[in-house]
Amino acid sequence: MTDLPLSVRGLNKKFGGLTAVQDVDLDLQAGICTALVGPNGAGKTTIFNLITGNIPPDAGEVLVNGKPVRGMVPHRIARMGVARSFQDLRLFGRMSVRDNVLAAIEHSAWLWQPGGGAARRAREAAVDAALDRTGLTALADARAADLAYAERKFLSMARILATGGRIWLLDEPASGLDPHSRARFVSLVRSAVADGVTICLIEHNLDIVTELATRIAFLDRGAKLAEGEPQAILRDPELIGIYFGERRT
């Protein structure tokens, strides 16, 4: 059996008295897009933070390509090919668009990068390709903080794209996009999936979810209530009821 790109076992996290994530198991199958769906505060972002090592879990483990990553610092996990976006983007605001992407793929913690000119040209090529695919080439020298909303969203995608990471965790990357940008975003993710990238997508817009996801995991109040094919999940009246705000008692 080949290892799953990413799987999560019995994950638990409490913030003070609040249970943010409770006994969550989640497997990302290689080369497909799995959507994480659930109402606000369900714990979706927290799961990402637990996977990337941003916050330590109270219990449970995370396996990347079959290897447990418990106790690893975020940058080590990132270098295993896990790339993520943030709900609030967290661009490098005072840097140029190009530098944002370049900074995302320079890993050496020394005064310069190893590998000399050849490696540098390879990085620059990766940046150019990422900017091209996200339509930001013309804005390469603009400051990230000065970009328009949709451009900022695409810049956060460009950073991920350039890393060449094989596992992407996308936190509401399409929220607030206009229809045209949304279509561009969908095709961007589709082509990544076609390239064999494994994606976990947090998304509130169910149209986008149906368009992109092969599987859906449904979360509410920290617990995974269901997982399966989109049709099955999205036709379940109880889940839809929870999703659209009829609270369970």
Partner: peptide, 21 residues
């Protein structure tokens, strides 16, 4: 690259970490 790394950390430490810094 050193300057880019420092400025990335300055602008968003958690994002810099998430990108392997």
């Amino acid at each position: 690259s050193f300057g880019r790394a420092l400025m990335a950390i300055r602008d968003s430490e958690s994002a810099a970490e998430a990108f392997g810094k």
